[in-house]
């Protein structure tokens, strides 16, 4: 997998139901949209009509929630076939899912659960990612999840685990900056150390989202604006990783489309600021690998 195999899409937002009509009727300027793959795994009707119409006008990325790459269950071939058929029809710029398990014993929890961070699990997961990539005939991205529990048997830090899986599977990384922040609070690790340990050449996309402070823990709710600490972490990531497509996720208390546009624009401004600062420093403007200055 080479990062240059993936286009730089710019600054996009997740396509959600309350905005379907606005996007189709007004074709607002937007660099790209991310869609939840499972929401479009239907035989026909409005969902597929909408996706086809959006795809006609914008680049899209397919983001899944049920691959369950870390499950002890066998991979779901029917699901993979549907994913492949959907990708054939809609030609997404790439396909992503989460570094987690979502169910076991043929049952689905519809949630993203963390794994024990051990060498054995690295091998289990990376082997499965390779099978998926062979089946889909393209490299995929895996995303770090927000989590609320860690396993006693874990021997690696979360970032070491993510890095090891991505390298052994030779896949890309979707780095969710908010998830890094949430998990850093919940498990008392350094979000900055996490970002700085992720291999630059594997990061293809960011997620930016809001969370809820429950006092004892942060909950990844995607129902708030992106908080200032997460923006600061994003700025640090931009300086490290350079030209990486960014996406705003908002799944609950979904605001007007214009709020999403403003949020994506803020991500663009931070990116430009970092690129400008870097270009002024050493004359280069595309890939920025310098140490953070924050």
């Amino acid at each position: 997998m080479r990062r240059s195999d993936f286009p730089f899409l710019g600054f996009g937002v997740g396509l959600r139901r309350p905005h379907y009509a606005h996007v189709l009727e007004n074709r607002p300027p937007m660099d790209w949209f991310e869609v939840i793959s499972e929401n479009f795994m239907v035989a026909g009707g409005r969902p597929l009509e909408i996706l086809a119409a959006v795809r006609d006008r914008y680049p899209i990325v397919m983001h899944g929630v049920s691959l369950s790459i870390g499950s002890a269950d066998p991979l779901n071939r029917r699901y993979l076939s549907e994913l492949r058929a959907m990708a054939k029809r809609f030609e997404p710029a790439w396909i992503s899912d989460h570094l987690c398990w979502t169910g076991v014993g043929g049952r689905n929890l519809h949630d993203l659960l963390p794994l024990p961070y051990t060498e054995e699990v690295v091998r289990h997961v990376s082997r499965r990612i390779r099978v998926v990539q062979d089946f889909l005939e393209r490299p995929i991205l895996i995303e770090n999840v927000s989590s609320y529990m860690t396993f006693r048997e874990s021997r690696l830090a979360e970032w070491e685990f993510l890095r090891a899986v991505a390298e052994e599977a030779d896949c890309g990384i979707l780095l969710d900056i908010n998830n890094v922040f949430v998990s850093a609070f919940n498990h008392r690790f350094s979000a900055e150390e996490y970002i700085d340990a992720i291999p630059v050449e594997r990061v293809v996309q960011y997620h930016l989202a809001g969370h809820t402070d429950c006092g004892t823990h942060l909950l990844d709710t995607h129902d708030h604006p992106v908080c200032e600490e997460v923006w600061a972490l994003y700025a640090r990531a931009v300086r490290r990783f350079g030209a990486v497509s960014a996406l705003i996720e908002w799944d609950d208390n979904i605001p007007e489309f214009s709020v999403l546009v403003q949020t994506a624009e803020r991500a663009r401004q931070i990116y430009r600021g970092a690129i400008g600062a870097k270009a002024a420093g050493d004359g280069s403007s595309s890939e920025i690998h310098s140490e953070p200055a924050l």
């Binding site: 929890l109 519809h110 949630d111 659960l113 609320y148 529990m149 860690t150 396993f151 006693r152 909950l219």
Partner: peptide, 27 residues
């Protein structure tokens, strides 16, 4: 506690409880 790590903020059971609540209320 021998499977999931608890701490002064949340016990192992509290942590699994977060997932249990999310499972039920999401559905």
């Amino acid at each position: 506690e021998s499977v999931i790590r608890g701490d002064d903020r949340l016990s192992a059971q509290d942590r699994v409880d977060i997932y249990a609540n999310m499972y039920f209320y999401r559905l």
